[in-house]
Simulated assay, not measured.
Amino acid sequence: MASIISRNVNKLRFLNSRLAQCRSPMPSPPIPDRTLPLLQPALPLGIGIQSFAMYQRCLFSTSTATVNPENQGDANSGEGEKSGESNKSSDGGRAVRGGPISWLSFLLLVATGAGVLFYYDREKKQHIEEINNASKAVKQGPSAGKAAIGGPFNLINHDGKKVTDRDFLGKWTLIYFGFTHCPDICPDELQKLATAVDKIKEKAGIEIVPVFISVDPERDTVEQVREYVKEFHPKLIGLTGTSDEVRSVARAYRVYYMKTAEEDSDYLVDHSIVMYLMSPNMQFVKFFGKNNDVDALADGIVKEIKQYKKQ
């Protein structure tokens, strides 16, 4: 009898220890239902029934509240997959933060570029309009738009007399620079000049003094120039001088000239092909190039003289 009581006491102690474990925060693995039949025969009827019922409820509550680590890992992996899917779905709708370009930054860039182009175009139009207004506001005067061409000179005419720029004051003068050994260009231009002078005299009644200035002082002596100018027009005045004097007048009228291929004493002189119209006070009015024929030259000179007289 005593041995039976001691066994029952040991069993109750075991049950109490299990109940204590149920009350502790540490989870315990669930006990399958098949263990209950094994425990029930070991307990006498009417002894510890309430304790066993409490123990059974504790086991059931613990088993439902405790999460299996493997199941928890699966759950976490499932949640990770769901969160990954949600991230993928959200990534499809908007740019990933930290990417190189987003739609918002692209739109801002386009808007900024359009604004810059609009501002530049407006400023350009405004600047052009200001220039046009300023040019219209400027009053044309005798010296407006005139190039710094012309100036004093000292040369010798084809009669061997000293001539300066002051000898031509009070007359309209048309000056051409060339040389007497010129094979074709100078004769053509001087013939055009002489014909235009006669046409101006005939149509407009304006007398123009034609002048030829040599840029080859080494060969164009007074006698050479005299024989040359009388072939084109009786009123054509030929001028020559020393190398320094010719260089000075060419510089004043912005005339280019230079010797080219030289073979013994025969050479050519490359020079500007321009006619200069000078006013009665020996001020530059306009130049006429090689592209003007006789009619264009005559009409251009008459037009410039009429406009000059209106000022």
Rank of each mutant, 00 (worst) to 15 (best):
I4Q: 15
I5H: 14
R7I: 07
N8P: 00
N8D: 15
V9M: 11
V9P: 00
N10D: 13
K11H: 11
L12E: 13
L12W: 08
R13E: 13
L15A: 14
S17P: 00
S24A: 15
S24K: 09
M26Y: 03
P27R: 12
L43M: 15
L43S: 09
G46V: 03
I47P: 00
I49F: 08
Q50R: 11
S51W: 06
S51H: 08
L59W: 03
L59A: 08
F60G: 06
T64S: 12
T66I: 02
N68S: 13
N71Q: 11
N71L: 13
D74P: 00
N76Q: 06
N76Y: 09
S77L: 07
E79L: 11
G80C: 03
K82M: 08
S83R: 09
S89D: 08
S89Q: 12
S105N: 14
L107K: 13
L108F: 15
L109Y: 05
T112Y: 04
L117N: 10
K125E: 15
I128M: 12
Q140F: 11
G145H: 14
K146A: 11
G151F: 04
N154M: 09
H158V: 06
K161A: 07
R166C: 02
F168S: 04
L169R: 13
K171I: 04
K171W: 01
Y176Q: 00
G178R: 07
F179K: 08
H181T: 11
H181A: 13
D184T: 07
C186L: 09
P187I: 09
E189R: 00
L190Y: 09
A196T: 07
A196M: 05
V197L: 05
A204M: 10
A204R: 09
I206T: 14
E207T: 14
I208L: 12
V215T: 06
V215I: 09
D220G: 00
T221K: 03
K230Q: 12
H233F: 06
L236K: 05
G241Y: 10
T242N: 03
E245F: 07
A250I: 01
V255P: 01
Y257N: 12
Y257E: 10
Y257I: 07
M258G: 05
A261K: 09
D264S: 08
D264I: 00
D270S: 13
S272Q: 03
V274R: 08
L277N: 03
P280G: 02
M282E: 04
V285Q: 04
F288G: 01
D293Q: 01
V294N: 08
D299V: 04
D299I: 03
G300H: 05
V302K: 07
E304L: 03
Q307P: 00
